[in-house]
Design a protein around this nucleic acid. Structure first.
Lengths: 157, 157
DNA sequence: TTTAAATCCTAGTTATTTAGTAGGAATTAA
DNA sequence: TTAATTCCTACTAAATAACTAGGATTTAAA
C-alpha cells in the first residue's frame, strides 16, 4: 500500500516546475540536481506528465519544461493518477458488477475499498499545486526568520 | 498503491470467521473453499492474525480458528495494518524528522502523504468487523426477497 | 556552420516484492 | 490407531519497481 517513486518524484518535479518555471523552461538536469533524482528516470516520468497535458517542453539549449496550466488548476490527484493509475486500494471496487463477485460474500469487503478510494481521492483532489507552492513559500520564509532570529522553525498556519 | 492479497484475503477470512465461527472452530480448508483461496497461503496469513491476537486456534480434528475478540472490537484498520503494515502511502510522513528532508523543499509533499494517511486510517478505523457482518446479513436478506418476490436486488440502508 | 545542451525514444537490467507451492512435524478427537 | 487439523519453514516463479544505457533529434548561440 505504497506509492511508487513515480508518484513521489513526479509530484516533486511538478512542484519544482511550479516554483522555478515561471519565467523560463527548467531542464531535467536542474530538477534532478535539486531533487536528487536520476535524470534518465525523471525524463520518463516527465514524459508521462507531458503526454497527459500537464507540462510542455522546448528542445535544444536553454530548453526544458514548464507547466502547461496554472498551478491552481492542477491538483495533486491529477498528478498522482497520471503516474500511479487510479488510487483505488483494490482494483475491484464497483459493487455488483464483476462476475466473480456475484457471490455476495465476496462483495462486502468492497464497501471498505470503495470508502478508502473515496477518501483518498477527496484528499488529493482538494490540494492544488498552488497550495503546495504556498506551503513551500511559507517554509522558506520561516526558515529565513529562524536563521535571522535564531528561533525554532515553526509550522506554517 | 494497491493492497496486497494478504490484506484482501485476510479481511475476507476474518469476515468468514465472524460469520461462521460463532459456535465452533472453522478450518482453513472450509474458509478456502468458500473464499476460493489457496490453503497453504491463507494458513500463513491467519498465522499472522493469530500472532497479533485477533484469532485463536484449536488443533486436531474438529479444530480450526475462531475470533479472539467480539467483532465489534475488531476494526478493519486493525486487520489491514497487521497484514499490510502501516497504511501510509509513503514511509516518510513525519515532517522534519528524517535527515534527508532537512532540505525543506523535499518536505512539502509530506503534507500530502500525511493527509492521505490520516484519511485512510480514519476510514478503516471506523468500520468494525461487526459492521461488515451486518452488511452481509443485509445482502443475504435482500437476495432472498429478490428471489421470493422477483424484484431487483437493492442496496442495504 | 558547427557545437553542445537539451528533449525524445526505446530497450535492456537488477533487485525486490508478491503470491504462492511444498512438505513434513505436532496435536488431538473419534 | 487413524485422520483431520494446525504449525512451521524453506523454496520458487512471476511480476513489478527502479532504474541504466545510449543513440536520435532539435535548436540556441558562438
Amino acid at each position: 500500500m505504497k506509492l511508487s517513486t513515480k508518484g513521489r518524484y513526479g509530484l516533486r518535479a511538478m512542484l519544482d516546475l511550479g516554483l522555478n518555471s515561471k519565467d523560463c523552461a527548467v531542464s531535467i538536469k536542474s530538477i534532478c540536481e535539486r531533487q536528487g533524482i536520476s535524470e534518465n528516470y525523471l525524463e520518463q516520468i516527465v514524459a508521462t506528465l507531458k503526454k497527459a497535458g500537464y507540462v510542455k517542453s522546448t528542445r535544444g539549449p536553454k530548453g526544458g519544461y514548464s507547466l502547461m496550466k496554472e498551478p491552481i488548476e492542477i491538483s495533486v490527484g491529477d498528478i498522482l493518477r497520471v503516474l500511479e493509475g487510479d488510487l483505488n486500494p483494490v482494483d475491484c471496487t464497483i459493487v455488483n458488477e464483476n462476475k466473480a463477485c456475484d457471490d455476495s460474500e465476496l462483495c462486502v469487503t468492497k464497501f471498505v475499498w470503495k470508502k478508502i478510494s473515496e477518501s483518498i481521492n477527496q484528499v488529493v483532489d482538494n490540494i492544488s499545486l498552488k497550495d503546495l507552492m504556498n506551503e513551500q513559500y511559507c517554509i522558506d520564509k520561516n526558515n529565513e526568520s529562524a536563521i535571522m532570529n535564531n528561533i525554532d522553525k515553526k509550522r506554517c498556519k
